[in-house]
């Protein structure tokens, strides 16, 4: 069977979602769940995961864990800064800065953009795929230079995302 690991990966995720959202573990629901997720996997697997997975890719879950830890740290830092701005009237300096990115895959760019928008204080306004630039609205900009802004905002995430999605 071609791309067996891909199919197994997508199938397991859909089945787990099904079991959790129905909230029961009986024989009847399990059979329906297996049938539904097999059909969904057969139809949509090739459009969800583009490249062929190998067994070695399980190691990337470690980097995903590291990514979550880094994300939580960045969240705490940004939340404290926003609380200072809102409650204690810390002076702000809003700006839209251009930040270059070097990730190739679509999933990687999406993950970086979602993370940057999820962090309070930075919102991705626009992405230019030709020149590989993100335009970020920054509530308290310490620099307007693209490379320095990249060091502060995205470079830490980008290193880990490159290892996860390539």
């Amino acid at each position: 069977m071609k791309r067996f690991l891909n199919k197994l990966f997508v199938f397991t995720i859909i089945l787990v979602f099904f079991i959790i959202s129905t909230g029961s573990f009986k024989y009847y629901t399990l059979v329906i769940g297996v049938i539904v997720s097999a059909i969904t996997t057969y139809l949509f697997e090739s459009s969800i995961v583009k490249k062929t997975l190998r067994l070695y890719d399980v190691l990337k879950l470690l980097y995903l864990f590291k990514y979550i830890v880094y994300f939580v740290k960045a969240e705490i830092h940004a939340h404290l800064e926003l609380v200072e701005i809102i409650l204690f009237n810390k002076p702000i300096k809003p700006a839209i800065v251009a930040v270059p990115y070097h990730v190739e895959s679509d999933y990687g760019v999406t993950l970086i953009a979602l993370t940057v928008t999820n962090t309070p204080g930075t919102i991705v306004l626009n992405i230019d795929t030709n020149s590989k630039l993100m335009y970020i609205h920054w509530i308290n900009a310490s620099t307007f230079n693209p490379d320095e802004a990249r060091l502060i905002i995205t470079s830490g995430f980008e290193k880990l995302v490159e290892k996860i999605f390539g």
Binding site: E75, H79, L82, V83, I85, I86, L87, I92, P94, T117, N118, T119, P120, G121, I123, H137, I139
Partner: peptide, 21 residues
């Protein structure tokens, strides 16, 4: 408080992210 207090639309979006996460 941030949504009510901050001066412009784009700044209010940042306060909205705080109450989302």
């Amino acid at each position: 408080i941030g949504v009510l207090k901050l001066p412009s639309f784009f700044l209010r979006l940042h306060a909205l992210t705080v109450s989302c996460i």
